[in-house]
């Protein structure tokens, strides 16, 4: 070390207290964030979800009344339905497409970097940009539908953003476009971590490639898949910007999602109680997903 540090050694012997004091001072923002924001604010919201707050939060408890009303509101039920459809499809397709792309890129191909760059760039873009560009591509008069009709198939109809029955799939197309690259990247990292000898062994045994993937490689990548799964799931619950940009929840209520319900109730409709109850339900959803993960991640690892 240089002279300055050497000199300071003589006149200052760090005691246990000052050493810890500095680290503690440095950790104050983290402690505040953890305690005040993550724990404090969440508890505050949960507590207030049992009150009859409307314009302003107030502590007049009404039991589960807000939840009763929430679960009998059509808009909330539509939102939860949409989240389920979007969530399940997004989970399946993201994993399948992400894995297929990762596996293809892992076959020692040329232009790997070019392909990866193309698959991943949407992830750099915001959901607002994603929503707007897909709104334009799915525009019935100028976009995909009109392109196919120009080729002669004049009865072709693909107008998801104006059809309440399939609007959520229109959002799904955009969501997949934005998010699969990330999962591909993570799964590719997982594939690269697999020992080359495994491949040699299966080749010698004459096992077909698809069988090797299905019965050897995928089971070996379980931890990577769990990470990917949790990432996708956490993203799904938060889906908000995409819907706002692409459809604003329309047509009608057809593409509403829980996160949008919360925002609208809290900041537009001034019905805080409903907003608190809805956001608490979102928290419950996340924990239903998260608890098995935490159990697998930390509960299972105790042995080593």
């Amino acid at each position: 070390m240089d002279d300055k540090t050497l000199n300071s050694q003589k006149n200052k012997r760090p005691t246990r207290l000052t050493r810890h004091l500095n680290a503690k001072i440095a950790s104050v923002p983290m402690i505040l964030t953890a305690v005040v924001v993550f724990v404090g604010c969440s508890v505050w919201t949960i507590v207030h979800s049992f009150t009859k707050s409307r314009m302003l939060p107030k502590l007049e408890f009404v039991g589960f009344k807000q939840y009763d009303r929430l679960w009998s509101t059509k808009r909330w039920l539509v939102s939860v339905d949409n989240l389920l459809i979007y969530g399940i499809c997004s989970l399946i397709f993201t994993l399948v497409i992400g894995f297929i792309l990762a596996a293809l890129l892992d076959r020692k191909i040329r232009f790997e970097n070019t392909f990866r760059t193309i698959f991943l760039y949407p992830f750099a873009l915001s959901f607002i940009v994603t929503g707007l560009v897909w709104q334009w591509i799915l525009n019935p008069d100028f976009g995909l539908q009109s392109l196919v009709r120009e080729t002669g198939w004049s009865s072709f109809t693909f107008d998801p953003l104006n059809n309440p029955d399939i609007v959520i799939y229109g959002i799904l197309i955009a969501g997949l476009w934005q998010g699969t690259g990330l999962i591909m990247c993570i799964l590719l990292a997982g594939l690269r971590g697999i020992d080359e000898d495994i491949w040699k062994a299966t080749r010698i045994d004459g096992i077909p490639i698809w069988k090797t993937y299905l019965f050897v490689i995928i089971p070996m990548m379980k931890p990577v898949f769990i990470t990917a799964l949790v990432l996708i799931a956490a993203g799904i619950v938060k889906v908000y910007d995409l819907v706002v940009a692409q459809t604003s929840g329309g047509p009608g209520l057809a593409s509403e999602v829980p996160a949008k319900y919360v925002y609208d109730k809290m900041f537009l409709a001034q019905n805080l109680g409903q907003g608190f109850a809805a956001s608490t339900m979102m928290l419950v959803m996340v924990f239903i997903i998260l608890i098995p993960y935490l159990y697998l991640q930390y509960g299972g690892k105790r042995h080593d």
Partner: peptide, 22 residues
């Protein structure tokens, strides 16, 4: 505190939006 922080990363923002506004 660190573990709280990491688990907190999974809490939907919507749960904390209003108290943070306050």
């Amino acid at each position: 505190f660190y573990n709280i922080l990491i688990i907190g990363a999974f809490i939907p923002y919507q749960v904390m939006l209003y108290p943070i506004a306050i």
